[in-house]
């Protein structure tokens, strides 16, 4: 899927980066979970974690 749409052909066609099956599943899960937030429903957004946190 081209990220650019126009009335002529660009020099370099830029395709939407394909996500791995794991990434697609993670994205799908996080989107579904975020719609259910509240009460005991919480989830971890893995991409926002600061893995290098020392303290």
């Amino acid at each position: 899927m081209s990220l650019l749409k126009g009335n002529y052909k660009v020099k370099t066609d830029i395709k939407k980066k394909k996500l791995s099956k794991e990434d697609i599943l993670e994205e799908k899960f996080e989107k579904a979970a975020s719609k259910r937030l509240g009460g005991s429903m919480v989830y971890i957004k893995k991409k926002k974690i600061n893995w290098d946190l020392k303290d």
């Binding site: 990220l3 650019l4 660009v10 020099k11 370099t12 066609d13 830029i14 939407k16 980066k17």
Partner: peptide, 8 residues
């Protein structure tokens, strides 16, 4: 990818 778009 935004960078690629800008440079396309």
């Amino acid at each position: 990818q935004i960078k690629e778009v800008i440079l396309s």
